[in-house]
């Protein structure tokens, strides 16, 4: 059966993108803000449960990837549909981890449902992770003025992946 290609805009909705993240006291405040974005967008139905899943993943190893990027992610039953929140913090937020951590400016928070259904959604999340390796892509994220710029950057750079 042929499946229709999933639009990235169904995974990252406008209300889940904040290009003007600032004033975060620390990593926890940044994560709280992003969890709230996912909650308000209806991606997760329990902030507490999702927060615990995020911190459980943090405890397994750093989600800070260097190069000012972090990809915190949580997998739990509170996630109703796979989704991604994106927050850009131009002035940087210190993201501490067991290995030290560093400043982050581009943060993608992935929400993954407990039940592994919807392969197409998972493919979109993994494609996004792959893109973050390329400076062409991260440059465009830094330059993005609005939600549409972010979505276009993902779509256009994704098309260049093998």
């Amino acid at each position: 059966m042929k499946t229709k290609k999933l639009e990235i805009s169904r995974v990252i909705k406008p209300e889940m993108v904040d290009l003007d993240g600032k004033g975060f006291r620390d990593k926890e405040a940044l994560l709280d803000h992003m969890i709230t974005m996912l909650f308000d967008a209806g991606v997760v139905d329990s902030k507490q449960e999702y927060l615990e899943a995020i911190y459980l993943r943090e405890s397994m190893g750093p989600t800070y990837m260097g190069n000012f990027i972090a990809i915190p992610h949580g997998k739990c039953a509170a996630v109703k549909n796979p989704g991604v929140a994106f927050c850009r913090c131009d002035s940087g937020v210190f993201y501490h981890t067991d290995l030290g951590g560093g400043d982050v400016k581009l943060v993608f928070m992935l929400a993954i449902p407990d039940q592994m259904s919807g392969e197409e959604y998972m493919r979109v999340l993994s494609q996004l992770a792959r893109l973050l390796v390329y400076p062409d892509f991260t440059d465009r994220l830094y330059q993005a003025q609005n939600y549409t710029d972010v979505i276009n950057a993902i779509k256009e750079c994704e098309a260049k992946l093998d």
Binding site: I71, K75, S126, R130
Partner: peptide, 17 residues
């Protein structure tokens, strides 16, 4: 990686690149 979503794909892409 632990959840099999983010790091495994990023690491794969970093190696290919």
């Amino acid at each position: 990686c632990a959840t099999g979503i983010a790091h495994s794909y990023m690491a794969a892409e970093a190696l290919r690149k």
